[in-house]
């Protein structure tokens, strides 16, 4: 079986799930990595080291900034020319979009957020979440190639073998574009919680501390500051529940849940999150879940390995101190 793996990157920063997709492709047979954009040398070198059998580089100024149409057309042309059985992508805003368009060109379908693949004869059966992850479905795609996106950390990352190399093939871009990129601004919301090994999350509870004598948002800001300190100490990222995002305490980029980001870190610490089903399905695949909540009946405890019934404003800073000492920092 021949699989194309689209290596998703933003300004040369590769989405780690691209390498995980490469590992999946290798387990099926031949893995061909696709690298779009200018300055692709470093990325194609890394692709070989992560196990790519071949690398196809499309280095064209039309692809320097992501734009849906030229990316989709270029992918469609490559797929038509070398007929892969499968095209894999890490799930990102970009890949969903241009994979969707390319599937129209190629008369096939896209299976999104696949957490498991099974081979059944010549069919590939993919497991993916529906209804916010409350239900799982097994699906097949009768078109060829099958296209699928995988969420971060759902599959093991292949070993990187330094020095493993090969010669990348160059291919031409389809440059016709219908949009113009005017500018780009990195905002403080430029976080990618999908890749984080540790996530410390805050919920509605971060705004609940009358002792501070502050209003709701200012209290929440204090709460997220403490959460941020613990996250930083553990080398992790800050997450949030939908309630915290809807409350305006933190930006949407931090939202964990099927409607935000589905995450599966090694350690997930939920602070002041009651645990709505939408949140739980977004984090339940984390390796270790710790929940801190004032309410002993909070549903979040049903998913946690360790729980603390208490005030996050007291427990979180104490935990930061304790971890600091024990980790020798």
């Amino acid at each position: 079986m021949k699989t194309f793996v689209y290596i998703d990157h933003f300004k040369s920063d590769v989405q780690p799930a691209s390498w995980e997709a490469l590992g999946v492709a290798k387990s099926f047979g031949t893995a061909v990595a696709l690298v779009f954009g200018s300055d692709a040398d470093e990325i194609s070198k890394a692709a070989f080291e992560f196990g790519a059998d071949e690398v196809i580089v499309v280095d064209d100024s039309a692809l320097t900034d992501y734009r849906a149409e030229p990316y989709a057309s270029t992918l469609s042309a490559l797929a038509a020319a070398s007929t892969p059985d499968l095209i894999l992508f890490p799930t990102t805003a970009r890949t969903r979009e241009f994979a969707a368009m390319s599937a129209v060109d190629l008369n096939t379908g896209v299976l999104t957020d696949v957490s498991k693949f099974e081979q059944d004869g010549d069919k590939l059966v993919a497991t993916r979440p529906i209804y916010e992850g409350k239900v799982l479905e097994k699906t097949v795609c009768s078109g060829k190639p099958v296209m699928a996106t995988i969420p971060a950390r759902a599959f093991p990352k292949p070993e990187r073998v330094a020095g493993k190399s090969g010669t990348a093939t160059k291919a031409a871009a389809k440059t016709e574009a219908l949009t113009t990129v005017v500018g780009y601004a990195a905002t403080e919301s430029a976080v990618n919680i999908g890749d984080a090994a540790v996530i410390v999350s805050g919920g509605r509870g971060v705004s609940n501390n009358p002792a501070l004598g502050l209003d709701e948002k200012a209290t929440a800001q204090k709460g997220f500051e403490m959460i941020g300190e613990l996250a930083k100490l553990l080398g992790g990222a800050v997450g949030a529940s939908r309630a915290a995002v809807d409350g305006g305490y933190i930006t949407y980029a931090h939202q964990v849940g099927q409607t935000g980001k589905v995450v599966a870190p090694d350690l997930y610490i939920a602070c002041g999150i009651s645990g709505a089903i939408q949140h739980l399905v977004g984090m339940r695949n984390s390796k270790l879940i710790v929940a801190i909540n004032k309410d002993p009946e909070a549903p979040v405890f049903s998913q946690a390995r360790y729980g603390v019934v208490g005030d996050l404003f007291a427990i979180v800073p104490a935990l930061t101190e304790a971890m600091k000492k024990k980790m020798g920092k």
Partner: peptide, 20 residues
């Protein structure tokens, strides 16, 4: 082109919470 072959409920978490 895309068809469902099976529906499943997600596995229920077996981890029992230990309260600290």
């Amino acid at each position: 082109v895309v068809t469902r072959v099976e529906l499943m409920n997600p596995p229920v978490s077996e981890a029992k919470v230990e309260m600290i």
